[in-house]
């Protein structure tokens, strides 16, 4: 409800500003023009959305698989943690905008360089909180499990892994929030289709309203993914303190 009021106030101010300032529509289209484009260009938007959504979802899936595998490795092996963690932080410095064209030359114009970039950007926020949570087992809980005769694997299976699940969800929510930007950046440096590509094309064609419409579609998709994750967490981890009823929902 609060979100609705803010959105309405924001759009109203924007609309008013475009009228009062007399800015050309190709510089700043009014919300009504963007809404018009959402309707008129729906086929074009849908076609490009399918491409970007695939890149985001597959990229997130790669990030999750890679992130969980890396987290497990770093958690279980002190040597791997000391050796690899700094390198993982290092990967986040890679200026993707600049190396993306190289990846396109390497992997081609298809979906592969996009997956690579989305996964590269998204695995990091998954690994960091999950790894921290895995390492935060209560010493008394560890003592208890030890006196029960638990092996290293059983400590992970019965205590550490379940207690890290809320952090895994938190990390995935962060990853979802940045996946769209990663996908758009990837398309920016070489692609045939996608909402990023469409935005890039629309601006020199003075179809600014369409560029904004593409952004609105991406926003709606990201919000839907995020809300879906929140709902899933509440369903799967009803015991988790980080998913109290409604408190963290973005809606």
């Amino acid at each position: 409800m609060a979100a609705l009021v803010i959105v309405v106030a924001f759009l109203g101010t924007w609309q008013l500003y475009t009228v009062v300032s007399g800015l050309d529509e190709f510089v700043l289209p009014a919300p009504t023009a963007v809404a018009g484009s959402l309707v008129d260009d729906r086929a074009l938007l849908a076609e490009n959305f399918a491409v970007t959504a695939t890149e985001m979802l597959l990229g997130l899936l790669c990030a999750l698989v890679l992130g969980i595998a890396l987290t497990a490795l770093l958690h279980l092996s002190g040597a791997a943690r000391r050796g690899l963690y700094p390198l993982l932080v290092g990967t986040q410095v890679i200026p993707i905008v600049l190396i993306a064209p190289l990846l396109v030359t390497w992997f081609g114009f298809g979906v592969r360089p996009k997956l690579f970039i989305v996964a590269l950007v998204c695995f990091f926020p998954i690994v960091v909180p999950t790894l921290d949570a895995l390492g935060r087992i209560d010493p008394d809980r560890l003592k208890l499990l030890t006196t029960l005769g638990a092996s290293r694997w059983q400590v992970l299976r019965f205590a550490e892994a379940p207690s890290a699940l809320p952090a895994l969800f938190t990390g995935t929510r962060l990853a979802v929030a940045i996946a769209a930007i990663a996908a758009v950046l990837a398309e920016y440096s070489g692609s045939e289709k996608g909402l990023g590509r469409l935005t890039l094309q629309s601006i020199p064609q003075l179809e600014t309203a369409r560029a904004y419409a593409a952004i609105v579609v991406l926003m709606a998709f990201t919000l839907a993914l995020y809300a879906g994750l929140v709902a899933l967490e509440r369903r799967l981890l009803p015991w988790s303190a980080t998913s109290p009823e409604g408190a963290r929902s973005p809606s």
Binding site: L144, T147, L148, Q154, F158, P162, S163
Partner: peptide, 28 residues
């Protein structure tokens, strides 16, 4: 062989009372 009941109960929040009680058997 001695088994510890720690100061705070250390029940696992994601398990039901029944599964918490049976934890030692699962570990076994």
């Amino acid at each position: 062989r001695a088994v510890l009941m720690p100061q705070r109960d250390q029940l696992l929040p994601w398990l039901t009372a029944l599964d918490n009680a049976g934890l030692a058997l699962r570990v076994g």
